[in-house]
Each structure stands twice: as C-alpha cells, then as structure tokens.
Design a protein around this nucleic acid. Sequence first.
RNA 1: UGGGCCGUCGCCAAGCGGUAAGGCACCGGGUUUUGAUCCCGGCAUUCGCAGGUUCGAAUCCUGCCGGCCCAGCCA
Length: 558
Amino acid sequence: MNNRTEEPPKNFIRQIIDQDLADGKNDGKVLTRFPPEPNGYLHIGHAKSICLNFGIASDYQGLCNLRFDDTNPDKESQEYIDAIQEDIRWLGFEWSKLCYASDYFEQLYDYAVSLIESGKAFVCSLDSEEIRRQRGTLTEPGVESPYRNRTVEENLDLFLRMREGEFQEGEHVLRAKIDMASANINMRDPVLYRIKHTVHPRTLNQWCIYPMYDYTHCISDAWEAITHSLCTLEFEDHRPLYDWVLDTLETPCHPQQIEFARLALDYTITSKRKLNSLVQDKHVSGWDDPRMPTLSGMRRRGIPPEAIQDFCERIGITKKDALIEMSVLENCIREFLDSRTARMMCVLKPLKVVIENYPEDEEEMLDVANHPKDPDMGRRSVPFSRTLYIERDDFMEDPPGKFFRLAPGREVRLRYAYNITCTDVVKNEAGEVTELRCRYDPESQGATGRKKKVKGVIHWVSTKHAVDAEVRLYDRLFNIPDPGSSPELAASLNPDSLKVLKDCKIEPAAQMLALEDRVQFERQGYFCLDRVHTRKEYPVFNRIVTLRDSWQKLERKV
RNA sequence: UGGGCCGUCGCCAAGCGGUAAGGCACCGGGUUUUGAUCCCGGCAUUCGCAGGUUCGAAUCCUGCCGGCCCAGCCA
C-alpha cells in the first residue's frame, strides 16, 4: 500500500511504541484505529491521522481498524459512512476490521448498568441549563447534583425507563459520579448517556438513549484491543476520563491514549463545520469541488493519493500547533507527477499565428517524446501546419528586458518544431492583437537544426488539428493565511480561486486520455481530465498545480 | 493569576548532557528544445527570555514571557 523505501520518520509516538515493545507490553502487538464521526467528508487533516494510524500499523506488523464513532444520530448519515470508506481506500489504505460504535450499544448499556450498581453513576434529572450552571467555572468548583445520591435501585429503574422511551429528551441523563470540585471540568460528573428520540442511520429506532463520546470511545478501544489510541490535542483533557472509565469498569484491556497536533494548512480550512458551510452557502460546488481540501475534492482536482501520503509523512507528528505552508503540499504533488506524467501541448489563451513562408496545404507529423527523460513513456505524432495557435502571454509588443519569448522582429523556437520570427502584428479596430504573421527557418528543425540557439521556447497547437477544450484554473480558496481564525469566513474567500477557460486548444493526443488521467501541459502545469464534466467531444481539464515559474517570480520583482 | 499542553532558521522538523540533521521556501551558479526537471553551492556561533547545576546545557533545575485547548445532554 505504501511504496516507502526509506525508514519511516521517527516521531514521539513511534518512540513510545518502540519503548512499549521493548518493555513487552501488549504481547508485542500494535493495534490502532481511525475513528471518524460520519457527520461530514474527510479532509486533508483526516489524511494526517489516517496515514499515522494505518502507517504505524503497517510498519509494526500490526492492524488498524476503521471505526465509525456514530453516537450522535442528529448529525450522522449513511452518505458520510459510504463516502468516508471510499476516500480512505482512494488514499491507499485498507482497514482490518470495519467497526461501528453503534454495534456496541448493548454492551455499552450493560456496562452503564454495572456502573450504576457499583455506585459510580447516577441518573440526573436536572435540565441541561441547570447542569451547565452547576458545573462551576474554570476557576470555581461545581456543585453536586441533588440527584447524586439516588439509590442504586432508583437509578436502575430510571435508566431502564430512559431506555424504554418513557421520557422526553432532556428529562434525565446518566452521569458518572466522579468529582464536582475537580480542576478538570471533564471530571465534574460528566454526562454518559442522553435521551434522543432520533432515528439512527444504523440502529434505526432501536435506541432512544445514546452514549457520549467519552464513555463510548475508550470502551470501544478496549473491546477492539486497541493498543495505542491516537487522537488530537483537544482530547488531552479528556484522557483522565478515558482512564477513569476503563479503570472503573472491568474491560479486557486498557489502551493508551496519545495526543498529537492536528494539521493546519495555510490559505485553507480544516474544520468540517466550516467546510460544510461553504457547501451549504454555495461558495463551492460541493464537497468534491476541486478547491476543497477534502479528499474527494483533491481527488477531483487530480492530486495523487501518493502525494498526500508523502506530504503527511513530511510534516511530521508533534504536539506543537503548526501551520504548514501550501508549498510543501505542492512540492509533493510536483515531485510525484514529474516523473510519471506524459507531456502535451495545450494553448490556454489562443493567439493565431500564420507562417507566411510555410506552404499553404502542407502539414507534417512531428515525432515527439512523451517525456523528456523517460523513453519508456513512448512517443507520439504532433501535427504541424501553416497556421498555429500560440499562447497570448507568449507574445508582447513591447517586451521588458528579460522577456525572451515572441515580439516583433524576435525569433523563438516552437517546441519540437521550427524557429519562427515575428514579422507583423495584425490588430482589430480596438487595437487588440488578433493575429501574428511570422516566417520560419526551414533549417531549424530536428537535432541538427537545433544548433542555432534561441533563448525562448514556446508551445503551440496546429489550428486545423486542435481539439477544443475547457480548462479550469484553480488557486487558493482563501486570500489570508489562516482563514480558520477569521470571524467572517466568506469575507476572506479568494474571488479568483477559479478561472474557467472555455476556448483552449490541445493537440490531438488529448483524445486518448481517460477520465482522471493526469498530464503535464508543457510550460504550464499538471492537469487532470475531469471525471464529472468531460464530454467526448469537449474534454474538461482541472489544473492540479502549476509548474514552478521563475519567470513569474522575476516578473513580480520588477 | 483553575487545569492541561506547547515554544529549535520565513514554514515544518531531528535532537534525549559532549558542542545545531533533513525537508519546504529563499538566494546564487551549471545542464536543458518546458524560464520545468536535474545538478552544485549558500542559508541558526545558536535553540522564547533570565538565572542556576556541570569540565561541558537546545538537552537537567528554578523563575519569568508568549501561544493553544477546556465551562455541549458535540466529537
């Protein structure tokens, strides 16, 4: 699943596992789990966790389960359950067991009963507002619930009746009996069960009481014999409760919770709630909009899963809140794609060129390598003729010093073909350039003709043979580095995150591409044939990432 | 100033008492029919700050400073 050749990077979690193994803990086994709540689509932040959990399992000859944390039917749905599985597989991982917290509801209930029996839990009949008020504050202790000393019998009776649907939502909850004066608010008699008369995507109407995360997660881990339960930093304060539940109950084992920092990528967001609002408010076309940092969006965009894995490995695992620069991801994508994609020529913004000294009805098929360094990628024929399209940006009437592309009187090389010199510029009444008249040097083709050095090389497509296409140019979704911390999300959206070019011209080889295939359009970037909108006679390409562009860098400086 | 956690180059990140790896970014230079790729070189006398322990500290101790998380019947 992972073609990693070098040693996996060391991080503090692997060090803990190494030590555990050295100490002979867990019978030398390593079992992890990836536990998403099915209330949204997976994003790049989840990818970090997936790569960590599945990566560790595979490197230590262990296993990793996929477990849906489906304890809140108000927010969860089968759509998400299906999408999450598809995305994990696409990323390149396969789970050992497919589990659902909801599969444990019956056992979870039994455990709750035993907690009541041992006097460690009680039914509280305060409403949520009262519970909140009595919980105290960060600096003041809470006060004990007046229901805290109900008898075991009464608690048992009430809890059973909660299950049987005798009560309205909010009438009662089951609470752990821990310590209302604890400095850790999570330990102030936390709620374990609440009543919800909601249809659950899997258990349907079977239950009207649902266990809370803190109660469910640790027990689920223990039942699956998870050895290392990896989660993000915000659960650090919950670890004492995780341990309390497992210490108080008789569970088969006691997994170790270890927390690491969640991923933050600049110029984007990794919050399911905020991602969802972009979808709901139609700022993007859906969860799989190619600008979204969701796995489905990145797939649609054309980002290879291997590049995402590489990225997750490079950023490391620590407890430090980090904001990773997008350039790291882009570098991973380019690095993966460079050696693996065929090259092609595509003119994004066409400008017509007529080669006056090239015979009217002649055309040549040029034999061209698909990859500059890898002969195994084969060759193809590219048609050349008297009239061509070149990129508008490759011509300037009055070019600045370092511009070595086409300009009046200047000579450039047409990639794989001839040198041409611009002899005349044709304009319309508005003064816009509509056509270039050029002359070519018949001696300049092929290996021998190359001896004359010209600084500029530009791409082109023969007008007669060109395939019309749409190209979608994507840029960062937000125009500030940390939109997640901005109060007004929509205000920081980048208005230029998508540019649709409907009049692009590609060489005929483009017709051989299959949906989701990736190519490099020379001098422009990597592109992916869109799997949703492409039609046979009108391909649609998504730009995955640009090529590094030192010209643009230079240009910006001037 | 209740509790938990974090602070090593612009962004990540190794380092675990013996004298600052690596990646991204950036800046040079070479190769090149992609201003791409590739190659070569540069890029922290210093580890949030201040004291202390030690022959020796980014690593140990103390005290500050800065940042993040927690008062859902969310996860």
